[in-house]
Design a binder for these strands. Sequence first.
DNA 1: TCGCACATGTAACGCGTTACATGATTAC
DNA 2: GTAATCATGTAACGCGTTACATGTGCGA
Lengths: 184, 184
Amino acid sequence: MKKSNKTQYAILGMLSIEPMSGYEIRQTMKQSTANFWSESDGQLYPALASLSKLKLITSKEMKKNNPREKKEYQLTAAGKTALKTWLQQEAETHNVRNEFLLKLFFGANLPAATNLEQVQAYYYRAKSRLEKIKITKQQVQREDKDSPHFPYWMMSIDYGIQLIQAQLTWCENVINQLKKMKTP
Amino acid sequence: MKKSNKTQYAILGMLSIEPMSGYEIRQTMKQSTANFWSESDGQLYPALASLSKLKLITSKEMKKNNPREKKEYQLTAAGKTALKTWLQQEAETHNVRNEFLLKLFFGANLPAATNLEQVQAYYYRAKSRLEKIKITKQQVQREDKDSPHFPYWMMSIDYGIQLIQAQLTWCENVINQLKKMKTP
DNA sequence: TCGCACATGTAACGCGTTACATGATTAC
DNA sequence: GTAATCATGTAACGCGTTACATGTGCGA
């Protein structure tokens, strides 16, 4: 398994929570890690097959000879070791691409009023993301209070909350500035 | 030009600042937009060629018949129009992938002390990014004070500063938490 | 004269998304 | 009965990085 193939490690991590099918991994990611990690179908299923071949996970098929049947995957000892080894290594930084900021950087090509609209749209999108993540937080606080994962899940949720709040504050400042530029 | 090919728009934007060679676009991006946008050589040069073919930019070669000679590109009227059209459209959000947060999410698989190390490393990297960006800000304040781009460049720089500061605050909280978990 | 910065480009490869294909089960 | 959800998978395509290839000019 190549060091750079994060999809496979993400799967191993998910299976360290509990045995799951591919579909359940997808659902769990959408609910819990969507703010900082996601995978598409086209990545997920081939990665599961490849991890199986490497004996890092095993599947228990419910009914034999039915490829459409739900497969429950679980970590092998080797898989758990591979996961831990990866977790211990310093995280690599992925190149960030923020199209909104790129456009703002070139904002001088447009009237201030148009840029204002862009920032306002960004503001409202951030606000709705914040609401969503706060609901997730409450849900985790209710349902996973006693899980060993609980403190770490809270940390990753709070990261999202604090970053979005910083974005909102920045937006408010920029909106005021642009409103002044609009009517000089 | 496909809507989704952001590289080409990034180039048009850069050339809206002033005529530049491919190399200069690279350098400018590294200095000014690195915190939210970057391009690699393998993207940049083919995109320039493709924009040329579309007549959105034109090049003035210094010496004819020398392909290694520096080419200065500038926007055509069509290029400027294409840029503005793109700028007016609402920015698309790019999927974020933060390997650090993904690892922290699976932190229960490791001792708290190991996770503490990861967070501390993240903290110091954030701190050094903050220092770098603050230097950039001072430089822009000195050199581009009177440019029409100035207010927008400041906004995009401040975005970076505020986001990194939020990360640092979060790190401090998490570090304290993990230290308590270390010795229960 | 040696190494570095300037300068442009190509090829190979892997990452990642989207669309497509299939079919079972469940809820209305 | 029909729409949505569960469930797994493949194919095609484009994005993006890395490594490679080439050559100039300049300063220590």
